[in-house]
């Protein structure tokens, strides 16, 4: 019951300006949005690449967290990061059911993802990536991640 109004307000705010490196691609409805991000400082792992993020909202957003994944196509790879699986699923506490807070918003999630990449020094996938990607049939919101490392 909240989502439509809240997303409408977020949208008009975002249309009047977004931080450097974040771009709104598609927001035709209040169910699914696409945004592009790139890392603005000189981190060699992510130079020259643009990543596409998909947001999916339930009618109870922002009381419920949005589902957020990286999506891959010809021009948008999945970024290398120890917390990002090669199928685009992100392990980040603020996107988890218990870590989410309704004061977050689409823009702040994008900024968090951007800084998660900016601060990363390891060009690698999470341990067990291949297995996880092959066997995972769950939606991101139903996965119970264990957060090993609060600093990444």
């Amino acid at each position: 019951m909240f989502a439509t109004k809240r997303l409408g307000k977020e949208l008009s705010k975002m249309q009047s300006g977004l931080p450097n490196g974040i771009e709104l691609i598609k927001a035709d409805d209040f169910k699914e949005w696409l945004l592009d991000i790139r890392v603005v400082d000189a981190n060699p792992i992510y130079q020259g690449e643009v990543y596409r993020i998909k947001f999916m909202f339930s009618p109870n957003y922002p009381i419920e967290a949005p589902e957020v994944v990286f999506v891959q196509d010809e021009s948008h790879p999945i970024p290398y990061h120890p917390h990002i699986y090669s199928n685009g699923i992100i392990c980040l506490d603020l996107l988890d059911r218990t870590g989410w807070s309704p004061v977050h918003n689409v823009e702040s999630v994008c900024i968090s993802l951007q800084s998660m990449l900016t601060g990363n020094t390891k060009k690698e996938r999470p341990p067990g990536d291949e297995n996880f990607v092959r066997s995972n049939t769950q939606r991101p919101r139903d996965i119970n991640f264990v957060f090993h490392d609060p600093h990444v």
Partner: peptide, 13 residues
């Protein structure tokens, strides 16, 4: 424009 201090941080209203 409604001033920020009158706005609920969850619904933005």
């Amino acid at each position: 424009e409604v001033p920020d201090y009158l706005i609920d941080g969850i619904t933005f209203e």
